[in-house]
Simulated scan of single mutants.
Amino acid sequence: MAGPMDSVGRAAKANMLLVVECGHCWHVGRFRANDVAKVVGWNKPLETIRFRCRRCSRKDATVRTQFIDQDHPPKGYIWVLQKARG
Rank of each mutant, 00 (worst) to 15 (best):
I49K: 02
K59W: 08
G76K: 14
R32E: 06
A11H: 04
L81N: 10
K13A: 01
K75P: 07
W42Y: 08
S57W: 09
G86D: 10
G86Y: 12
M16P: 11
R10I: 05
E21W: 07
V80L: 13
C53I: 08
L17D: 06
F67W: 09
V63R: 01
A2Q: 09
L17I: 11
K83M: 13
P45W: 12
C53F: 13
N34V: 07
A37T: 05
M16K: 13
T48D: 15
D71C: 04
K59S: 08
F51Q: 05
K44V: 03
M16C: 12
V63F: 10
C53M: 07
D69R: 12
G29Q: 00
V63W: 13
I49P: 12
V39H: 07
V28L: 11
F67Q: 12
L81E: 12
R52M: 02
N43A: 14
A33L: 02
A2M: 05
K59G: 04
R10S: 12
F31E: 09
H27N: 15
V19S: 02
G3V: 11
V40P: 09
V63G: 00
I49A: 08
V40E: 06
R10A: 09
D71S: 14
D6I: 03
R58H: 14
G86I: 06
N15K: 10
T62N: 13
A11L: 05
T62F: 05
V28W: 00
T65G: 09
C56D: 14
L46I: 02
K75E: 15
K83Q: 14
L81S: 06
R64Y: 01
Q82M: 12
A33M: 03
K83V: 11
G23E: 07
V28R: 14
G86E: 15
A11N: 00
V39N: 03
M5N: 11
D69S: 02
W79L: 04
D60H: 03
Q82L: 14
V63P: 03
N43M: 00
R85H: 10
K38V: 00
R64D: 06
E47Q: 07
R30W: 01
H24G: 04
P4N: 11
I68Y: 11
R32C: 07
R64T: 15
N15L: 00
N15A: 14
